[in-house]
Design a protein around this nucleic acid. Structure first.
Lengths: 222, 222
DNA sequence: TTTCATAAAAAAATCGATTATTTTTAAAAG
DNA sequence: CTTTTAAAAATAATCGATTTTTTTATGAAA
């Protein structure tokens, strides 16, 4: 049975792109794995042209590695790169959150509270599934949304996808999640208090803690 | 006569990608222009499949805008975005140069001197053509090369392409170039002196000055 | 055995044609 | 006139087949 039907709407190319992006971030493909294009065609029930267009785009975003004349493969994982990604996240998301705290308006405060609330509810009720993941992504997106830089947001989201490849290597039981969730709450408080300096600092701490978790997952995984 | 033959080597897709990337940065397409795929096919003498793969990749890098079901267009230009790009360049290239100064080895020092020398010679002898542009790009790439972060370099190069769309809107006569070229020289000196702080600061100044030039070009252009 | 060359198979890349969607044109209705 | 509708044209997206290149398999020579 085919459990990989694509979402409706848009072009075949854009749908297979988004589906593959998520599957890559979720670790449905092994790190370093060579992608068999024909198998993908089969699995996702999609034509060759839209599939190749999506693969090319994913390679441009760094979610695949493209080698001329020898197709596409899933990028490998390694500790040094995880450090690189985390370090850059600290810089970029710290910068973005600081700017957001300065520039965000009342609507942003409301959005933040909403996103944080939905995430917190999912923390308790759900089993850390994809629903939680989607809310978590949205929460972090909201934190930096009014930073005023489209390019900064673009880079941050790219790094998030990369980071999540490591973070999602293992499960996050409540014991692990608790301190991170508390930080989410405090990030909102600092945003509402308009404390840009402290906000940036806490964002750094938060990413460092997530890094520790992701690193542990990575080490256990290998 | 067809003056747009593609460079040899690699796949058709990779060649048309690189050619289009350069043509976009060089401003051979008007900002906001809708790309007529069939015209491109003709102009660059390339098949539809590799062409579309290249366009998809360029869109992922932000050098094109893709709209589902209505093809590709060249992104527009506007002052706010130029500011955004410059501001991010200051942060990211400043960060990268600072790290490079700390981490770069003797080979880097030699590379820097070489790249600076070739650029300086081109300043005097050439007419600011593509040869100079290539050396200028290489010089800036060398400055940050040993920063230790592949992702940082990736983002910096993306921003460079974007920035150059503005900078190359107009010509840079020697009068304009002189202070910028002097800064190139001083950047090398600070690198050799291992003054990371001052290096970062000067990199910021340099980008700010380039921004002024690019902004002037942009305003004159519209 | 190992190395090298060659043939066969597999996979990647490309092509040309088809299908689907949007845009333009032109005519009809208000 | 302006707006609406329908048809035609143009363009984008996709498909299936072909070509090119790489990888694997096979056997001969060192």
């Amino acid at each position: 049975m085919n459990n990989d039907a694509l979402p409706p709407g848009g072009t075949a190319s854009s749908r297979i792109f988004e589906t593959l992006r998520q599957d890559l971030v979720r670790g449905r493909f092994a790190a370093g794995e060579k992608l068999a294009i024909n198998a993908l065609r089969e699995r996702y029930q999609v034509g060759l042209s839209p599939l190749r267009e999506a693969l090319n785009k994913l390679a441009a975003f760094g979610l695949l590695v493209q080698e001329n004349q020898r197709g596409f493969r899933v990028p490998g994982l390694n500790e040094a790169e995880l450090e690189d990604i985390a370090r850059l996240r600290i810089e970029l998301e710290g910068m973005a959150f600081e700017r957001a705290i300065v520039q965000g308006d009342a609507q942003w405060e409301a959005d933040l509270l909403g996103a944080a609330h939905r995430l917190k509810r999912a923390d308790k009720t759900q089993d850390m599934g994809e629903a939680w993941e989607a809310l978590h992504t949205r929460f972090h997106r909201t934190l930096v949304a009014p930073c005023g830089s489209a390019w900064l947001i673009r880079f941050i989201e790219q790094l998030h996808d990369q980071f999540d490849r490591y973070r999602r290597l293992g499960a996050n039981p409540p014991v692990i999640r608790q301190p991170l969730d508390d930080q989410h709450q405090k990030l909102v408080e600092l945003a509402l208090a308009r404390d840009a300096q402290a906000g940036r600092a806490l964002m750094g701490d938060h990413i460092r803690q997530s890094f520790d978790v992701a690193l542990a997952h990575y080490r256990q995984h290998t």
